[in-house]
């Protein structure tokens, strides 16, 4: 991946930068967010901001709580303490309409989770047709638009099983895009792919980033995190251990990040 030169660098994901001073209110705002699974404390007070247009990469060891943090953002997991505000909705209040939230927040999983009985076009348009009630013609145009965005305009009529892993993952990204979300979450979306297929998926994500899409992505691709993300957040034992711009990976401040980067690169 090449290093991107980008216009206004949004606020880094540091909790020291109060949201009042940033030009736009953050789309995602974690304040001392806690999450337990039974007796296991998985998130132990997370502070994190994601400004509109910002790309934040979450990195960290297995079990450090990256997926859990991401899943809290679209309400797949309920937070147990602290405040989590996403697209202006206070998720910690417990009164948020999750279906409305999910029209604003897309998510892409490691295992694609495409609908195997539907073509790429039908996968992409199911939610817009059923949730947003768009018409048939509009749906076809929408599918053509988002599939072109991920470079799969010619695969509209293919079923998932007829596509490579990389292509399936790009359809999954297109499926999220079709809802015109304000924010997309990516959870290790290239981890299940053969090395030669990860590039095509990362390129799509990079293009989205350049287009101004707000994104939170959990990734093991350090070079990608460094070059594409505006902010990198290193999680360790359920906490934000270290965060900053991509260069932080070259100059870790903590022993834990140094060890992690040492193993990871």
């Amino acid at each position: 991946m090449t290093l991107q030169m980008r216009a206004p660098a949004p606020s880094a994901a540091l909790h020291e930068s109060p949201s009042m001073t940033s030009p736009a209110a953050p789309l995602v705002r974690f304040r001392d967010v806690r999450k337990n699974f039974g007796a296991l404390a998985v998130l132990k007070g997370i502070d994190l901001d994601v400004a509109p247009g910002e790309v934040v990469a979450l990195i960290g060891r297995s079990g450090s709580g990256k997926s859990t943090a991401l899943r809290c953002v679209n309400g797949l997991e309920k937070v147990d303490g602290g405040e989590l505000t996403v697209c202006g909705r206070a998720l910690h209040s417990g009164t948020v309409d999750l279906r409305e939230l999910r029209q604003d927040v897309g998510i892409v999983f490691q295992s694609y989770n495409l609908f195997p009985h539907l073509t790429a076009e039908q996968n992409v348009t199911l939610a817009p047709r059923k949730v947003k009630r768009i018409g048939k013609g509009e749906a076809r145009d929408l599918a053509a638009e988002v599939l072109a965005q991920v470079g799969l305009a010619d695969k509209a009529q293919s079923y998932p099983e007829q596509l490579s892993g990389g292509q399936q993952q790009r359809v999954a990204i297109a499926r999220s895009l079709a809802m015109h979300p304000k924010l997309i979450l990516f959870d290790e979306v290239t981890s299940a792919l053969d090395p030669e297929l990860t590039g095509e998926v990362l390129k799509v994500i990079e293009r989205l980033a350049r287009g101004g899409m707000t994104m939170m992505l959990v990734t093991h691709e350090m070079a990608f995190a460094r070059s594409v993300a505006h902010a990198v957040v290193f999680m360790h034992q359920g906490k934000v251990w270290e965060s900053g711009k991509g260069e932080m990976l070259a100059h870790p401040q903590t022993v834990e990040l140094r060890q992690f980067v040492g193993n990871g690169l």
Binding site: L76, E100, Q103, N113, L114, F115, H117, A127, K130
Partner: peptide, 28 residues
Amino acid sequence: RTQWEAGECLALTSTQRFVFVILPQALR
């Protein structure tokens, strides 16, 4: 279960998830 979850993340109602996502696969 991930198929339910995928439908949920796309803001489909639980009935829509069942009818359009789960049922066609279960029928097969």
